[in-house]
């Protein structure tokens, strides 16, 4: 039984006809007959391209395989070896930081920018510009990062100009992951700012007028008008962020190593772990472990799906 009323749901929910009578009308019967022709072409392509290879991956994770040639049955060995590997645990922690840490920062910045730009002159221009970084390939950002944070890079030069001479060694291994997280935050927050601003545009101005009359401050307006009406957007975005962030990979690779090499293990995440098992430049590919790690990522995605279903459930006819 889907709960009929969900806090923050839009008025469309109220308009939707409910009750058994409507479900069996000729209108609905005709539509249900069309369900297969509408859904199954997409499902067929999706099964073929995405699901079938994934099932193969499940099988692969129980084997030892160099990518071609004979396969060797390994049972659960790939999984047990992986769980005992300290680097896998590092990868887990780093994956967590990317999904949760960067996610929180991205959403905070996107909210902040949304509030700031809400009634600022030139907001259209600003909105277009904050989206730019997501168009730029990682390799450009990576090279620029070097020129910014190298010991004699722009950041340190500017800091010296204002008299700051003690600064962290930005690109030292201990700090590298943090600096990468900052880069990720910057690159991703633009997209979400654009989305949030678009959502705010749909909020009827009368609500703000009312808030105005009540004498609400900017923060209060956000807290009591903007945020409740953005809740849906935020929950959809957070699902998308999580599944995307779990797979973060190219960004880590181009940021940290020269082409063809692997970055130091202290910045690996799950996707990098999987990649390293398959593409270590000095080693033989081990697709079994790469696949096992892929399966873990998929399971985590499945967990996040629970969240996704909570978002979607309201209108699907689940019961």
């Amino acid at each position: 039984m889907a709960s009929a009323i969900v806090v923050g749901s839009t008025t469309e929910d109220g308009r939707r006809p409910v009750g058994p009578g409507r479900r069996h009308s000729p209108f609905h019967r005709a539509r249900r007959r069309m369900f297969v022709p509408f859904v199954y072409p997409a499902l067929a392509v999706y099964m073929l391209i995405m699901v079938a290879p994934t099932l193969f991956t499940l099988w692969l994770s129980l084997n030892r395989w160099a990518g071609a040639g004979p396969m060797q049955w390994a049972g659960l060995h790939n999984y047990t070896a992986m769980f005992r590997d300290p680097v896998f645990r590092t990868s887990f922690v780093n994956t967590f930081w990317i999904v949760v840490g960067v996610g929180a920062a991205v959403f905070a910045i996107a909210f902040g920018m949304t509030i700031l730009l809400q009634d600022m002159a030139g907001r259209r221009f600003a909105r277009a510009v904050v989206f730019f970084p997501s168009l730029v390939p990682g390799i450009a950002i990576s090279i620029m990062w070097g020129y910014l944070f190298n010991p004699d890079g722009l950041v340190n030069t500017l800091l010296a100009d204002v008299g700051v001479h003690s600064h962290p060694e930005w690109l030292a291994q201990d700090n590298m992951f943090k600096v990468i997280l900052i880069g990720m935050t910057w690159l991703s927050s633009g997209v979400y700012t654009v989305i949030f601003m678009a959502a705010v545009d749909r909020i009827p101005p009368e609500l703000y007028q009312a808030a105005e009359i009540e004498g609400a401050s900017a923060f209060q307006r956000f807290r009591y008008v903007t945020f409740p009406l953005m809740k849906d957007v935020v929950s959809v975005c957070s699902v998308l962020w999580c599944v995307g962030a779990l797979k973060t990979f190219e960004f880590l690779l181009v940021f940290s190593a020269e082409s063809g090499a692997l970055p130091p293990t202290n910045i690996w995440n799950f996707a990098m772990y999987s990649y390293a098992e398959a593409f270590n430049p000095d080693g033989t590919a081990d697709y079994g472990i790469a696949a096992a790690c892929g399966v873990i990522v998929l399971l985590l995605t499945g967990l996040l799906m629970v969240l996704a279903r909570r978002v979607l459930r309201r209108d699907a006819d689940t019961y």
Partner: peptide, 25 residues
């Protein structure tokens, strides 16, 4: 929109695809 009972399962099946990494397929 069709309010077919299995919609939820189908949708979930599709959305799970968001998590499939390229390196394993």
């Amino acid at each position: 929109r069709f309010r077919v009972r299995s919609s939820g399962v189908h949708t979930a099946l599709f959305v799970l695809g968001l998590g499939i990494p390229a390196q394993t397929m």
